[in-house]
Design a protein around this nucleic acid. Structure first.
Length: 424
RNA sequence: GGAGAGAUGGCAGAGUGGUCGAAUGCGGCGGUCUUGAAAACCGUUGACCUUCACGGGUCCGGGGGUUCGAAUCCCUCUCUCUCCGCCA
């Protein structure tokens, strides 16, 4: 959620910024400011009535103590009309607060100045591409054939047990999965991230804190009996560790990592790109999350990008980095870099990581703040990124590392984890 | 699932209708003393909204009610703890 203060003082900049998302927020912003003005007026009127009532109440207390019953009762009379007015104003004020809140929830984050205007993924900027396409002797097989051939992942079995999008990993397929998780966690730890194993189910307040709720309700699995949500990413529980927290001083840099399964309903995305591992309802991911002083955010984002680069380089994958355009940048994000690996058999790019800075957008909802040197409270900045999401990495590894004899080579960095260097 | 207890400031913990945003202790911060530190002593120490400011207002788990006045009384929800049962 944007800060109301920012809308008051930087109205034009906010509207201009949101245009990069292909959104004209003028009407909403004007509406917010109008209601905000009304709210402030009603609120101050309400407060002066409250002050008067407090004053009278105090007088009555004194009168009773002095035994001046009659005068006290007379004073009581004075309160009735004030109380009526107070009740009326209270309703107006809380009504306005609700309306403003609802409007505020509809506004996405203002893109960073580096973000280009654009409608959709076609307008994203390719900022770098590393590696080149594998040259194969024959036709490489797509990963869904490889997983079947070597009995690594059983999609049909998952359908039987749960439904589409819940694969069963077997044998070397399962081991490869575990190896990647371990490898990613070790790398994150080397980079200074502290490991967490958070709950995989969260409450409503946490969903609101990181911005999944209220708007994107349909994306999460909801356990209605207990009113809890399966996490769509470790970002939710990890970031919410710092909900309602005021860090004691401004010297902080919090770096967290965690592996969790991620659950996504992916409502409305059936039919396209859902083959094999490309899009699942449950998948594994190692996430990195940072909480930073606003002055340090740009640097932190760069470090996270470098970290993900390092992972892909070590795995020897051909990848590219995109800076998402305004229209493709997530609701809460101010700037996002997507990482895509090239899938040799499918001959297309697969997104494997998304690294974002949210600035104060999440912190505002989370009430995540810190104390400045002069003892003021100020919103902190949050960032997060996948490092990495497993399924498409697995897809790319299997497809790209096929050998002429049909076997699949395991990248050297993973061998200590898998304890085997070849499939097939 | 059954029975009971409870939710107060960073923590512990008092407070059952008016002077309580809240005693006291611990912790934190500043100071005195000291070569330095400890101890001792003194002071200070919540968040939010509004205002240029003075000031004003709100907050004692959430919501509602009674009252001139609620941390304190009533209703309701949520959560936590203890015991029993069940289970890893």
């Amino acid at each position: 959620m944007l800060e109301i203060q920012r809308i008051r003082t930087e109205k034009e900049a906010v509207i201009e910024g949101l245009k990069k998302r292909n959104i004209d927020a003028t009407a909403t912003v004007e509406e917010i400011l109008k209601k905000d003005q009304e709210w402030r007026e009603s609120k101050s009127e309400l407060e002066s009535i409250a002050a008067e009532l407090n004053q009278i109440a105090k007088e009555i207390g004194d009168l009773f103590k002095q035994g001046k019953q009659a005068e006290a009762n007379a004073a009581k009379e004075r309160t009735t009309s004030l109380k009526g007015k107070e009740a009326q104003l209270k309703e107006v004020v809380s009504g306005l607060e609700n309306e403003i809140q609802q409007l505020m929830y509809t506004l996405p984050n203002v893109p960073n100045e580096q973000v280009k205007a654009g409608k959709n993924e076609l307008d994203n900027e390719i900022v770098d591409e590393v590696g080149s396409k594998h040259i194969f002797d024959g036709e490489p097989l797509p990963h869904w054939e490889l997983t079947k051939k070597y009995d690594l992942i059983d999609f049909e079995l998952g359908v039987k047990i749960t439904g589409a999008g819940f694969p069963v990993y077997k044998g070397k397929g399962a081991k490869l999965q575990r190896a990647l998780i371990q490898f990613f966690l070790d790398e994150a730890e080397k980079a200074g991230y502290e490991e967490f194993i958070p709950p995989h189910v969260v409450n409503e307040a946490s969903g609101i804190g990181t911005g999944q709720l209220p708007d994107k309700e349909g994306q999460m699995y909801h356990c209605t009996v207990d009113d809890l949500y399966l996490i769509p990413t470790a970002e939710v529980p990890l970031t919410n560790i710092y909900r309602d927290v005021i860090l004691p001083d401004e010297n902080f840099s919090i770096k967290m990592t965690g592996y969790t399964p991620c659950f996504r309903r992916e409502a409305g995305s059936y039919g396209k790109d859902v083959r094999g591992l490309n899009r699942l309802h449950q998948f594994d991911k190692v996430e990195i999350v940072r909480i930073e002083h606003p002055d340090n955010t740009a640097k932190a984002l760069d470090e996270m990008v470098e970290h993900v680069r390092g992972l892909l380089a070590k795995l020897g994958l051909h990848y590219r980095i995109l800076r998402l355009c305004g229209g493709d940048t997530g609701f809460a994000s101010a700037m996002t870099y997507d990482f895509e690996v090239f899938s040799a058999a499918q001959e297309k790019w697969l997104e494997v990581s998304s690294v974002s800075r949210f600035d104060t957008f999440q912190a505002n909802r989370l009430k995540l703040r810190f104390k400045t040197a002069d003892k003021k409270t100020q919103l902190a900045h949050t960032l997060n990124g996948s490092a990495l999401a497993l399924p498409r990495i697995v897809a790319a590894l299997l497809e790209n590392y096929q050998n002429a004899d049909g076997s699949i080579t395991i990248p050297e960095v993973l061998v200590p984890y898998t304890k085997f260097d070849k499939i097939g």
